[in-house]
């Protein structure tokens, strides 16, 4: 690719600017559509691998006990799954669709995240109030970072230098410096923050507050809450569209998804999606949102333009899908 462009530039410098523009366009184009969704099924100790193009279940992988958290690497090759009951982390091969290794970590591994370059894995321990730093290939423990009470949702920023941690029972989000491996800032949010998600530009962090039924919006440059948006009852998971214009929030007790306009910072629609919606994520390219309905054991596919449900794909028992469950999703 680079050689090609070099040759073209040598051929004729007047095309240079055109080709530079083309390169800029290529770089700014989001990655390809995700191939698989990896759904943690807490009720039957498995991960459902769903082929997103064919809208069907491709494989079911047995993992530890009561899997909840999931993190898919940006290139889709590595899948990390937490098992709070058996206190294990599983590493799955995202291409061969099989287990590579697993390891005992902590007392209640729940939230999990992988850096954009895949070089480190972070795991929130619900009981120990720690974030573990893990090796991405052998899952060995590299460091432990003390955080607030009941850490749950995790997000890593675009350059991998910052880790954000929802601390459910402290009503805060902590900012961790990933070189120092320590909390450098603590931000007050709503009541019982659980799920968090960063937009694709890395400018904002959205926080779902389970007990105050609202969404805290954090400006990641200022590290301040710039808005608190009321949503439905018991918000749990968040997805942000690739253009960062729309935010979708699952409302567990309302069986709905709130659609938020990211510019106006308010709810513009509420869609009924099914019972007890939990994990949610936006595909990096094709204008779709995927939602795991915990009570009815299905993955709902939502068109983000028409705001219509276009498919329902069966999963295993009690899907949680807590985390980034497709490659490159937000």
């Amino acid at each position: 690719m680079q050689n090609e462009i070099q040759i073209q530039l040598n051929h004729s410098t007047r095309y240079g600017i055109l080709f530079l523009a083309l390169i800029a366009l290529l770089i700014s184009t989001p990655g390809s559509a995700a191939q698989y969704a990896f759904i943690t099924n807490q009720g039957d100790d498995s991960v459902s691998v769903i082929n997103l193009k064919e809208s069907r279940l491709t494989a079911t992988l047995q993992v530890g006990s009561k899997p909840a958290g999931v993190a898919v690497s940006n290139n889709g090759k590595r899948i990390y799954v937490t098992n709070p009951e058996s206190r294990e982390v599983y590493l799955l091969d995202g291409i061969k669709l099989k287990t590579i290794t697993h390891s005992q970590v902590g007392q209640g591994p729940l939230g999990i995240a992988v850096t954009p370059d895949g070089s480190r894995v972070y795991l929130a321990d619900w009981y120990e109030d720690l974030v573990y730093v893990l090796d991405p290939e052998d899952l060995s423990i590299l460091a432990k970072i003390p955080v607030g009470e009941s850490p749950s949702g995790l997000e890593v920023n675009l350059d991998g230098e910052r880790l954000y941690v929802a601390e459910r029972d402290d009503n805060t989000v902590s900012v961790i410096d990933t070189h120092l491996n320590q909390v450098v800032k603590r931000i007050e949010v709503g009541k019982r923050p659980f799920g968090i998600r960063m937009d694709s530009r890395g400018k904002r962090l959205y926080v779902a507050n389970v007990a105050s039924n609202d969404l805290s919006v954090i400006d990641l440059d200022k590290l301040k809450v710039i808005s608190t948006i009321p949503v439905g009852s018991t918000p749990y998971g968040i997805a942000v569209t690739p253009n960062s214009q729309r935010v979708f929030v699952t409302n567990q007790h309302d069986n709905s998804v709130s659609v938020i306009d990211a510019n106006k910072l308010r709810e513009i629609r509420r869609l009924k999606v099914g019972e007890f919606p939990e994990g949610i994520i936006a595909d990096p390219t094709d204008g779709r949102i995927y939602i795991a309905n915990w009570f009815t054991n299905e993955l709902v596919v939502l068109d983000t333009e028409k705001l219509e449900i276009i498919n329902r794909i069966p999963t295993g028992e009690s899907p949680r899908a807590f985390g980034v469950f497709i490659a490159g999703g937000h």
């Binding site: 009561k66 009951e85 729940l110 009690s318």
Partner: peptide
């Protein structure tokens, strides 16, 4: 208290 165990039941 609103703290809870690791696995929701149905």
């Amino acid at each position: 208290v609103e703290a809870h165990g690791p696995t929701r039941q149905k």
